[in-house]
């Protein structure tokens, strides 16, 4: 049995469920939530996603910013395709599948 995976399930599941239950635990009796909670929740969601985009691109930057890999051109091209497709068609699945497919072709066949 993989004990790290068990702990991972417990931590990710536990934190997520606790977050979902938070409003019912704190404000179930009709109390008003303080404004600062609403504010942090509102601004943190887009900020955390932007951080994860930087993180993902950073992982690529560390291993693929070399002449051999054309300084990360595959990542930049695929990322641009995802943004443009999403702006144009607004279909998350299409954007993700097309972007990933283009990236796989680029890293396997070109750079």
């Amino acid at each position: 049995m993989n004990s790290y995976m068990l702990a991972l399930v417990a931590v990710t599941g536990g934190v997520t469920i606790l977050l979902r239950a938070m409003p019912f635990i704190l404000f179930g009796s009709g109390k008003q939530p303080p404004a600062v909670i609403g504010y942090i929740g509102r601004v943190l969601s887009p900020a955390a996603i932007a951080m994860l985009v930087v993180y993902c691109m950073g992982v690529y930057a560390e291993s693929r910013m070399t002449a051999e890999h054309m300084f990360g051109a595959a990542e930049l091209i695929a990322a641009a395709v995802v943004v443009l497709l999403q702006l144009w068609r607004r279909n998350p699945l299409l954007s993700i599948i097309a972007g990933t497919a283009i990236y796989m072709v680029l890293v396997q066949c070109v750079m």
Binding site: V43, P46, A50, V53, V82, R90, P92, S95, I96, G99
Partner: peptide, 29 residues
Amino acid sequence: DFAMTALFIVILTDQCREAQNRIPAAIGG
């Protein structure tokens, strides 16, 4: 593995359609 990057880019793109999310996203980035 680019699927994960693409997922986050898609979510970010959609969030940035709403003007009020742009400054928070810029601060996070």
